[in-house]
Nucleic acid binder design. Structure first.
Lengths: 125, 125
DNA sequence: CGGTGTGGTTTCCGATCGGATACCAACTAC
DNA sequence: GTAGTTGGTATCCGATCGGAAACCACACCG
């Protein structure tokens, strides 16, 4: 099976937060990362995405499904079980996403410096 | 100098419109592409970005400036001349952007198919 | 003098976003 | 029966987005 998701997998000061490149909506990139190593259940996804509401998670997942990046499967178990998994198309996104993460890490300090410089100008002006 | 920008450089049905990956806000990616081959003036940028309002262009350019991706220069000519140019940081984005464009082109049909399939389900349901 | 071009800013407004909260059906466990 | 879990929906609401339109300072042109 699948190791549990690390509740802290998304560091609040993750360099990617500064990155000008985004996947889908606010949550889509993180959801895709959560599915990288296998299917996940709805409530399982909510753990690393700590502040997400059910509404926001549903909306984001539906968009990913509509775009063919994620597949939703309802299992007929005794207890209700719905799993979300990356499609091959969704999985193919991981490679460019890795390139973007690498870019963000490489240029994190430049991005921080630029923000701080403009904040100083703002404060001075 | 710099060849004029092609007014049609952004095909309304460009595959990148379907891409789930975005650079900055709605316009930032296109602006960066416009600056790829050298600095451009404000009104020059408005040509390929046909429907953009001055307000939207200003806002997007200010954000790019704040993030250190674009530099704004006011030239002291007789006529007012303001030019926007990519910084080295902004230029470094071109490489991952190319990777994304390649991904979007490679998977355009899959993306289209997924959208159409979900639209059919929507219509049938 | 008025008209034109440049590089914007301001105001208004409808649409969308995103969080909080409450609610729900189905099923299980006690 | 009652409580808890799962996978959501429905409603409200303030904040933000994004376009349309009007306006503006400044310089040049004739």
């Amino acid at each position: 099976m699948n190791a549990p998701l690390n509740p802290d997998m998304f560091d609040p000061v993750c360099p990617s937060a500064l990155s000008p490149i985004h996947i889908g909506d606010k949550w889509a990139g993180m959801i895709i990362r959560c599915l990288e190593h296998g299917p996940r259940r709805f409530s399982e996804l909510r753990i690393p995405l700590r502040s997400i509401t059910a509404k926001a998670l549903t909306k984001s997942l539906r968009a990913l499904e509509r775009d063919g990046l994620v597949q939703r499967t309802t299992h007929s178990d005794r207890v209700r079980r719905v799993e979300y998994d990356l499609t091959p198309l969704g999985r193919s996104l991981l490679e460019p996403m890795d390139a973007l993460c690498a870019w963000a890490q490489d240029h994190w300090e430049e991005l921080l410096d630029a923000r701080e410089a403009s904040a100083r100008l703002q404060h001075a002006g």
